[in-house]
């Protein structure tokens, strides 16, 4: 019985794909295993962070305080604290930020400053330590998006060329060249696809977290329990899901300007904070037309 000549390269491709997946996943988690117990204990702001990064976590903090009446939001987008935090108490990040200002802050600035606040940034660090989100400074993040697309295009071309070459393999002096090219091409495509998920500055949930998010998103009661007044839905999907059209519109009009990321922050939005899309999609569920409805 003769072995199919395609079997070794195919088996090798599958094996390398698995190794690549595990290696990249591990790199994204900073070499840590996902802490399943911690995953089951995520709170509202942490869910917002794993779903939409620091920007969405900041929005959820602000919306939650608006819901409890602890903040006043004007139609012009000015935010004032309803009460100065008690001395010695640990206030929410928006209240602490507002306490540093006289007369409140524009919502746009508050969103940027809360996202960059130690409270929100610490959530990212804690989630990374628990292996629940990808490292913000992982090597693949420095690879530009165009390079990944170019790699995939080259990979496809190489694989096709390899298959063509392998087809004529018998007549060739080096029959293994075609197979090698096919394997290299397939691997390049796989690596490109896997790395696309972590390019830029996105906060990317790791696989166990993503599975948890998917389960949460299917459970309406759990979403309601996560945060009252639609805040739970905002945490998981973005501002598009906020039921109050007036507040939603105020948030849309006061989206952080492109490039307004606080340089001190490590963790950012679900997409790049420095991109126009990131400014909106970071908290709006990734819609192209912002949060308006």
């Amino acid at each position: 019985m003769t072995m199919n000549p395609w079997l070794p390269p195919l088996a090798y491709s599958v094996w390398t794909a698995l190794v690549l997946g595990v290696a990249i996943g591990s790199a994204r988690r900073g070499g840590k295993r996902a802490d399943r117990r911690r995953l089951a204990e995520l709170d509202l702001v942490e869910y917002a962070f794993v779903s939409g990064g620091a920007a969405r976590a900041a929005d959820v903090c602000v919306l939650r305080l608006l819901g409890t009446g602890s903040l006043h939001l004007s139609r012009d987008g000015q935010v004032v604290a309803a009460r100065t935090p008690e001395p010695g108490a640990a206030p929410d990040a928006p209240l602490r930020v507002l306490d540093e200002e006289y007369g409140g802050l524009p919502l746009r600035e508050l969103r940027v400053r809360v996202a960059a606040s130690p409270e929100i940034q610490a959530i990212g660090t804690a989630l990374l330590a628990a292996g629940l989100v990808a490292r913000p400074d992982a090597g693949p993040r420095r690879v530009p998006r165009w390079a990944l697309f170019a790699t995939m295009a080259l990979g496809v071309a190489t694989a096709v060329a390899g298959f063509v070459r392998a087809d004529d393999g018998a007549a060739s002096a080096r029959p293994w060249v075609g197979l090698l090219l096919a394997v290299i091409g397939i691997q390049a495509c796989l690596a490109g696809l896997l790395l696309l998920g972590v390019f830029g500055e996105r906060v990317v949930p790791t696989a166990p977290t993503m599975r948890r998010l998917i389960r949460m998103r299917r459970d309406e009661a759990a979403v309601d329990a996560l945060g009252a007044g639609g805040v739970g839905a905002v945490a998981l999907w973005g501002l598009d899901r906020f039921p109050d059209p007036v507040v939603k519109e105020i948030f849309r009009r006061n989206a952080p300007a492109p490039g307004s990321r606080d340089p001190r922050s490590t963790w950012c939005g679900s997409t790049s904070c420095a991109s126009p899309q990131g400014a909106r999609a970071g908290s709006c569920g990734g819609t192209a037309d912002g949060c308006g409805g």
């Binding site: 009446g69 006043h72 939001l73 004007s74 139609r75 012009d76 000015q78 004032v80 409140g104 007036v246």
Partner: peptide
Amino acid sequence: RPEIDLTI
């Protein structure tokens, strides 16, 4: 007052 317009 403008700061609390929506609240009002």
